[in-house]
Simulated scan of single mutants.
Amino acid sequence: MFVGNWDHTHRYLLDAERFIRRKGLTKLYKSRKVRLLHHSYTYLRLFHETTSLAHDSIDQCRQPSSSADETAEVDQDEPSFRLGAWNCGLEKKLSEVKDLEQGVNDLHLKNPSRWDYSLYHDVAGIPESFLNLLSQVVRLGNEIDISSRSPEPTSLSWGHFSSSAKTLERCITHWKPSPQELVQQDEALEAHQLLNVIDGTLDNKMQALHHALTIYFYRRIYDIEASMLQSKVEQVRDCLVRCNQGHGATAGHDFGMVWPGFIAACEALDPELQHSFTTWFDGAAARSGLQTFSVAKEIAEQVWERRQQQKDTSFSWRDFIGKEGRRLFYT
């Protein structure tokens, strides 16, 4: 994923998961080091799933691995990231608290309940509540893809979809990380950052992620046209630029910012706005040395070109990889 060998990323992620389930989740006591490893896997796998097509992900999950133990379970939760039984009661579930066993073993964040001892903020500077919502968007989007491709009736009725989508939209709109998620995990939080947490103000990184999640939701679930998302696209761009200006505070998390940059850039319509994303990708690639930023820029530029050729503002990166048979930087 980091060096650009994307054709094999999914297979290696599944191999890593087999290893974690056999050697990690089976431990009665999981040390902080083990838990950090598991959190790192979940973080990478979840963002990988956001840029995968559901049917491709399912097919690859069913394929045997060439290097892992073939008798191991790929994923006891559901390899294709499907909806949980509580989806219609998502708001209530989000307010509940996971017990210790659920918290340390929920490798795919299938259960969206809160767990205050999560380490995602330590791993990637991202609170678990954000990743919970992202997981639910991926799952609902996959249900849509599967129901549209399968000739058989699925569990996703129109009423179920509408209720799930409205609930998820409301949760995303009003999302803010809790003070416990940020303060408890980071005793070195500076005074001004602590005040921001207390008064509910999101820093630039959190704002960029939040705006990008909103874009991703409306594109993935409702597939609305890019022209309706331009204000959010501009907000992501502005947040990314401000992150660069305060680069010292975010230097350790450059890789995590490729996702909001990519999600927003692909929807940019104005040439000047597109150029600002190109400049940001180039700068991030130079600072981090990660090829991922360059590949994300290349895909965004091809999406812009194809949208211009077809004069269709509804054309998305999902349309591009679906028609071209391309793989994204996370797949």
Rank of each mutant, 00 (worst) to 15 (best):
E190C: 07
A191K: 07
A191G: 07
H192V: 09
H192Y: 14
Q193E: 15
Q193S: 09
Q193R: 07
Q193H: 12
L194E: 05
L194I: 09
L194A: 10
L195M: 13
L195C: 06
N196C: 03
V197T: 08
D199H: 10
D199S: 01
G200A: 13
T201R: 00
T201S: 09
L202N: 07
K205P: 00
K205I: 03
M206H: 11
Q207P: 07
A208E: 07
A208L: 08
A208S: 15
A208H: 07
A208W: 04
L209M: 12
L209Y: 13
L209S: 00
H211K: 11
H211M: 06
H211G: 08
A212L: 08
L213A: 01
L213I: 02
L213F: 06
L213P: 02
T214I: 10
T214A: 07
I215L: 10
Y216A: 06
Y216D: 12
Y216P: 00
Y216H: 08
F217H: 09
F217A: 01
R219A: 03
R220Q: 06
R220Y: 04
I221F: 03
I221E: 00
I221V: 12
Y222T: 02
D223W: 13
D223Q: 15
E225F: 01
E225S: 10
S227L: 06
M228E: 13
M228F: 13
L229A: 01
L229Q: 12
S231D: 12
S231R: 14
V233D: 05
V233R: 13
V233M: 12
E234P: 02
E234C: 11
E234V: 11
Q235A: 15
D238P: 01
D238Q: 12
C239P: 04
C239T: 05
L240F: 05
L240R: 07
L240W: 06
V241C: 09
V241R: 12
R242L: 14
R242N: 09
C243F: 06
C243E: 13
C243S: 08
C243P: 05
Q245D: 09
G246S: 13
G246V: 02
G246Q: 10
H247W: 04
G248N: 06
A249E: 04
A251L: 08
G252A: 03
G252T: 10
H253Y: 15
D254T: 04
D254C: 05
F255P: 03
F255D: 09
G256T: 11
M257K: 07
V258F: 09
V258S: 00
V258K: 01
W259V: 02
P260L: 08
G261R: 04
G261Y: 06
G261Q: 09
G261P: 05
A264I: 04
A265G: 07
A265N: 01
A265L: 01
